[in-house]
Structures are given as C-alpha cells and as structure tokens.
Design a protein around this nucleic acid. Structure first.
Lengths: 223, 223, 223, 223
DNA sequence: CATGAATGAGCGTTCATTCAT
DNA sequence: GATGAATGAACGCTCATTCAT
C-alpha cells in the first residue's frame, strides 16, 4: 500500500486526479531535461533524437511514447517548462507592493531562474527566435511577460514613479530587450559570472536612463 | 555590354582581377542575396541548397564555386554583408558632433538599414543567436557595435550629457538589447509599420529612462 | 453464465481441456477475429499488432500468448479459419448425389460463406496471393478445393454430364478462377449486392460455356 | 553530333517532343525493372528501397530522382508498364475479324505477355489485389480489359457465335477469372511449363463449358 | 494469465556535396 | 566557369517483440 492508496482512503480519487493534471511523468521530465541539455550543446537542428535518448538513458523509441516527434520536444519545452518559470515571475511580482519594487523583483527572479538552469537559458536564447516552427507558444510566453511589465508600468504611472507619455509597447520591449541581452551575454560567456549582480544596475538603467541629471532635468523642463 | 566588358577590352582580365580583391563578383552577391531571402523565408536549417540555387537562377553546383559549403553562406553573410552595414554605422556616427546626436544617428541608421532589407533583418534576428556554428563572425560584429556605443557613452560622460558610475558593459548591452528587441518585434509583425518612428522615443528612453522626474531627482540627490 | 461455466461446475477444467484439443480458446478466436477485421480494413502489412490488440480488447502482449508473431496470425487464419470453412464445402458437396448438383452446392456454399463474413472474404482475397510468406498453408487449402472440384468433374465424366478429353488441371483452375473473380468483384463493390444470385448463372457458365448452341453443336461434331 | 541533333535539323524539335511524351528515361526503366524483379522475389512490403537500388545498380537516392516514393514505384508499374501491355491487347484483338478469333487472340497475347516477363506476372498477381493503396490505376486496367472482353462478347452475340441471355458483367469476370487463375498457377509453379499451350483449351472452355454435348443439348432445348 | 512500458533494429527519405560533361 | 545527375551518409520515426510487474 503506497502513499497514493492511503491518500485515496482519506481524500478519494478526485483530489489525486486534480493534482495529476499538470504533473508530467518522471520519464517525461527525464527526456525533456536531457533534450534541453543536448539542444543547449548542439542547437536544436544539430541534435539528434539518438543523442537525446542516450543522454536521457532511454531507447530511441521511448522518446516517442512521450513526445509526438522531435519538434514536439521543443514545443513542450516552451509550452510547459519555460511557461512554468514565467508564471513564477507573476508570483514574485505580486509579493511586492509598489511598481518599482515589482520591477526589481521581476528582474531579480528573471535573472535568477536563468542562472539556475543554464541549459534552459541557452536553449531559450537560441531557439526562441526561430518562431516559424514553434508556433504560437513562444509568443504566448513573451506576451505574458510583456503583460506583467505593462501592468507594472501602469501602476508606476499611477503612483507617480514612472513617467507618462511614453509608447506603452515600446517601453515593454525596451525592458525585455535589455534584460534579454544581458542574459545573452552571460550565456555567451559560459555563465562564468554572477548574473544576479546585474539586476539592480539594470533596474537603475530602466528608471533613470543613461542621461545625466543635468540632461534629464533639461528634458523634464520641456515635458 | 556593361562596364566590365568594356574595361576588359582595354585592360584585360588581370586588372579586373586586382580590382576584385575586395569586391565580390556579381554571382557571389546574386547567390548571397538569394540565400538570405530563402533563409528569411524558411530559416537556415529548413532551407536547401537547391532552393537557394533556384532563387539565384544558377545550378546547384555553382554555389560551390563561390562558397565552401552551406554553412559558409551564412558565415559570409555575417562576415561580409552585415559587417558592411555595421561599418556604415560608424560613418553615420562620425557625422555628428556630440554624443547624444551620435547615439541618435546610430539608432536611426540601425533601424533604417534593417527596415531597408527585411530579409537581412529576419535572417540576422533568427540566426545570429545560433552562435555555436557561425563561429567568431557574429561576435566580431557585436563587438564592433558595442565598441561604437562604448565610445559614444564615454564621450557623453566627458561632455556631461551621460552620467557616470555605470557598468560600462551593462550600458552597452542595455542599448543594444532594446534596439534589437524593437527590431525583433517589427520583424515579427511582418514589417508592417514604419520602424524609423521608433528611433527618437527609443533614444529618449535610453537617456531619461522610464522613471518620472520626481523619482529621478530623488535618486540623483543621492548620487 | 454460459455453457462453459456450467460444464465447469459439473466436470471441472480437465474435461474442458480435453475437449479443447481442437477447439481454440475464446481469446484465441477473439484475437483472430479482431485481426481479420483489422487486416480487412488496412491490409496485413499496414495493420499493427496494437490495432489488433485494441480491436480485440486485450493488451499488446496478450497477442503473443496465443500467436507466435504477427505473421503467425495470418498463418493461423489460413490454417484454421478458412480451412474450417473449406472443409465445410466438402460436407455440402456430399449432400448431393450427382456431379452437377455437387458443383452447384459447392458454388452456393462458397459464395454463401464469403458473403457471411466479408472481413474473411477481403482478407482471403487480399492476402492469399502473397504466398511467399504464408508458406504452404494456402496451397493446402487451394489443393483441397481443387481436389473436391476434381472429384466432382471425374464423377460427372463417369455420369456423362461432363465432357471428357479436357485438361483436368485446367478445368479445376477454370472453375476456381471464375468463382474467385466473382467474389473479388463483389468485395471490391463493398459487398453491396447479393452474392448468392451469382451462383446459378455461374454454374451455368461452367457447364455450357458462352458459346451458342449452334457453335457448340458444330464443335461437338468434331469431337 | 548525335542522332537527335540530326533529326532536329530535318524535323525540328516538335517531332522529338511528341515522341518523348511517353518515352521514359533509361534510368527510369532500369529502376522500374529492378523494382519489379525485387517485388517479385520478396513482395512489395518486404522489399526495401536499398534492395531495388542495388538491383538497379544505382544509389538509394537516385530512386527518388525518378519516383516520388516507394509506393510510387508500384503505382508507376501499374500506370505505365502493365497499362502498356494491356493496351497491346487491344491491338491484337483488332487484328482478328470475328469474335471467337478475337477472344482467342486476346487470350494468346495475354498468356504470351505474362510468360515473357515472369517478374511482371508475379508482381501483377501478388500486388494487384492490394487495391487499397494503389488507388485507381488497377481498376483502370481491369476495366479496360473487361471492356475489351465485353465488346468481343457483344460482337459474338450479334454474329450468333456467343449465346445471349447471360449476365454481361458475370461473363466478363468469368473469362478474366479463369485466365488469371491459369496464370497464377503457372507463376506458382515457377513458370516451368509453356503457358501458351493453355490458350486454346481455355478458350474452348469459355465457349463450350465443361458440360457434355448431351447435357448442353438438353439445356439448350429449354432455352 | 494479462499487461503495456520499453526496446532497438530497420526502413524510407532527404539533401549537402561531388564530378563528368 | 557552369551544370545537374548521381551519390550515400545520416536521421527521424515505426512497430514487432519482450519482460518485469
């Protein structure tokens, strides 16, 4: 009698069923992790299913019990794995009260998560721009991220900490692009330094820009 | 009868050969342009040499008279074509006197060049992150770009228009990342709006950030 | 509760076991019927063991408790199922006294049995010509059939209703081929008409041929 | 200067073009012949593309320059090769005047062609019943054959040599089925006897049936 | 007996590259 | 230089078969 059976006695099947909705099997994650590692090393197109199978410690055919085809592995990476991470961002944001703290939390978490799993970071960086094949999944993730940022900016504008009269969409891209580039550079350097130290200076750049006080003051006069 | 034929009559092939040292032959460019177009449509890995040959109006084998192999076409794209464009950036920068104008010119030109050749833009966006295979070429380009930005920032700091005490490398990535993301979004939208209108607002964001005057002022006090 | 269960109560398994020597178990037939159905739909080579298992309502592995391998299912079909049917032909033939009635009975039963089980008919038609793999089984069946026909013809010749001086083997093929083609056409039409109505006209063709009375008479003069 | 160039001078391109419409390239026939041979030995499904390539003396990839895929080879066999043969039947039929001679010519030619190319015969016999995949091609051939037979029967009925009041479609199947079975038996025996000797006795069976004169006469009285 | 997850050999197909013309 | 037919290595994927439970 295992833990599941015991739980069944107390809670019945329905509870277990609910819990299982999003929990993938061990092999699924085993293969997915192996794939991300292999993709990180060789790029998606230069990776073979056999390499993934070997890395995962399963037979080639086993891959196809858990994924429709090679493309599907990448799709699932974006649909399931990175989506999971990006959804965690929202939770982190909600921990903070004001917009500036929310932005700071978001960037901290963003850099932290990517630093935690460099294979994920590499694969995300390398393959997310190949949007032709991956379909709508990446857009979803990007949109979710941009939405979080958008809400933060709006809140900040109401709080008076973020200035108004900016192209909303441009601001969001501006923030995403900068953090993305910072991660890209870190990945490119082999992850050999602490990515998290970039968080505060980056947020500082978002808020104050690179212009000097004098320069900014002048500009602000005309606003 | 074109100018080359005429010149041949007077000078013979040898002279032309000398002149060709850095100027690539017609067919070289013909094939490279075709390749970029095909890459833009299908991505590098989903493009075949035959497709490129057909698009260029040459036989498959002809490709191999001008390029070592398929990978080499992409390498040459980064080494020759985009490098050419990025070198143009430097000229544009030099036209301006102060750092702020230089930055503005750079961003204008950057967006302008990519808007001018959407196939180049798509291919650059899609394939430049696949650095594993392309070797050192892209790094060169990125480095050159970052160097230009670095020089501008330094000059601005001396001129007093750009604030000091920032991580130099972070600032450069910050600028590159934001413009890159803006281009990416434009490409993703199918190039259906005027990319150049993004230039001034973008430069504004670089210089002033998104923080309100009040917020920036407070921060500046502590600087 | 079926008859087997009742018998079990009185006699126990041992008696059943004896009786089962030639009677195949329920699951054996269950799987075989499912296989024939799947083969009829997809053809042998385009059918998978999994499809058969699903159709039979058993696990994939269970198939291998009753059959050596996939090929063996087809072999057993020819060895057991169709053989059973073809042996029934002999009984039908023996019900009649003279050769002509025997032939008529045979053709009636032949068409009737195939009409009764269109999956069997389709599979028999489609796969029986692939003799390379199925080995000797089909030959056995064909031989048995030809033997029956041969005996009828001999009897008819003795009775004076079937003419002599014909190639015995050719006559047998002639009869088999025609009925086979009639079934094939019916199968090809999706079994949408009553196959049995073809029996009498077919027997008529066997006996009288297609030549007119005048033509036949002339020929008979020279015999 | 080859024969084609010379002909061009006299006849121009149009004539060559016309002649080329149905003439397939050497390699096409080389591969098709090899495929039929391999199919004849192993059956379509148990043959590999590599086997065909080796038999044809070309590389695996070369197959795909002339055929869309493995299935297409079989399709082309039915569309091009056997169609060619079956169209030859019509020519043979037209050489004769009366229906009986036409039928005799048809059967002679039919047996002759199959005897000439046993690989074709085997493949045709084995694969033509697998109509699911091959699509409409085989039906076309069968229909063409049945049409020829149908015309002959009609003509014979008008000439008074073939009796009336028979199911037209049944008669046609009856003839096709019998000759097909005769070929099948010959193929099955490894083609070790002269198939052509079966032609006359077979036609005799078509016309007079197997009933004795007495039997036939009795029947004819009631007609 | 029954299961079905796991296996891995084997095949169809693609396509970068070569080379005889 | 230019061609494009031919090549064959390599890969994604299937599915008959096994075996631990």
């Amino acid at each position: 009698m295992n833990i599941h059976s015991i739980l069944n006695i107390f809670y019945g099947d329905s509870m277990i069923a609910e819990a299982d909705i999003d929990v993938k099997s061990d092999k699924y994650n085993q293969i997915l992790d192996a794939a991300i590692k292999v993709f990180a090393q060789n790029g998606f197109h230069n990776s073979t299913v056999s390499q993934i199978a070997k890395e995962a410690g399963v037979a080639d055919g086993t891959i196809y019990l858990y994924f429709k085809n090679k493309d599907d592995i990448l799709k699932e990476f974006f649909k399931y794995k990175t989506k999971l991470i990006f959804e965690g961002f929202r939770g982190e944001v909600e921990k903070a009260g004001n917009a500036v703290d929310k932005l700071r939390n978001l960037i901290h978490r963003h850099l932290g998560e990517f630093q935690n799993d460099i294979n994920m970071a590499i694969t995300f960086q390398s393959e997310s721009r190949q949007c032709r094949r991956n379909g709508i999944q990446i857009d979803d993730i990007t949109k979710m991220y941009l939405d979080i940022v958008g809400e933060i900016v709006e809140q900040g504008q109401m709080e008076g900490t973020i200035r108004k009269n900016m192209y909303a969409s441009l601001v969001k891209r501006f923030i995403l692009g900068a953090v993305d580039e910072v991660i890209h550079t870190w990945v490119h350097a082999g992850g050999r330094y602490d990515l998290l130290t970039m968080a505060d200076p980056l947020v500082d750049l978002y808020l104050r820009g690179i212009g000097s006080a004098r320069f900014v003051a002048e500009k602000n006069d005309t606003e």
